[in-house]
């Protein structure tokens, strides 16, 4: 690796990367609705083998996991102990990284909860 460090260390958590996990969750939510509506309209029933849905879900989970992991690595910068509440760059970074990590966890669970009905209800009603 170059002296500029690994690629995920060159990325910097910002307010913009903070909203990535919830946006992925929202996107997956919309995708699920569209997928169910289109399957029901075109095929009259859920696909028996929902490859598109499984792929979309795995992609969303992977990206959320990735953003959480990056945030975790960045928040783990060594330094003074908690609480990190000063108006310094490093404390700001830690705060945003921690928030991103928490949002990633929430979004991960949110995506899983969106998926469960599809597994149990294979019916267009």
């Amino acid at each position: 690796m170059t002296d500029r460090g690994k690629w995920h260390e060159r990325l910097k958590v910002t307010l913009w990367t903070l909203i990535v996990p919830p946006i992925l969750w929202a996107g997956h939510f919309l995708f699920s609705y569209l997928w169910a509506a289109i399957s029901c309209a075109k095929a009259g029933a859920f696909m028996t083998f929902p490859i598109v849905f499984v792929a979309g879900t795995l992609l969303a989970l992977a990206l959320i996991g990735l953003s959480g992991w990056i945030a975790w690595r960045q928040g783990g910068t060594p330094g003074s102990s908690a609480p990190h509440e000063d108006g310094t760059d490093i404390d700001r970074l830690r705060f945003i990284a921690k928030s991103t990590l928490l949002l990633a966890g929430l979004s991960f669970v949110g995506v899983l909860f969106t998926v469960l009905p599809v597994i149990f209800l294979r019916d267009c009603m």
Binding site: V109, L112, F113, L116, P117, F120, L121, D123, M125
Partner: peptide, 15 residues
């Protein structure tokens, strides 16, 4: 807990 409840309750929606 919520995941367990969801898994438990969802089958009741199956006609």
């Amino acid at each position: 807990i919520l995941a367990a409840l969801l898994v438990y309750a969802l089958p009741a929606m199956r006609p």
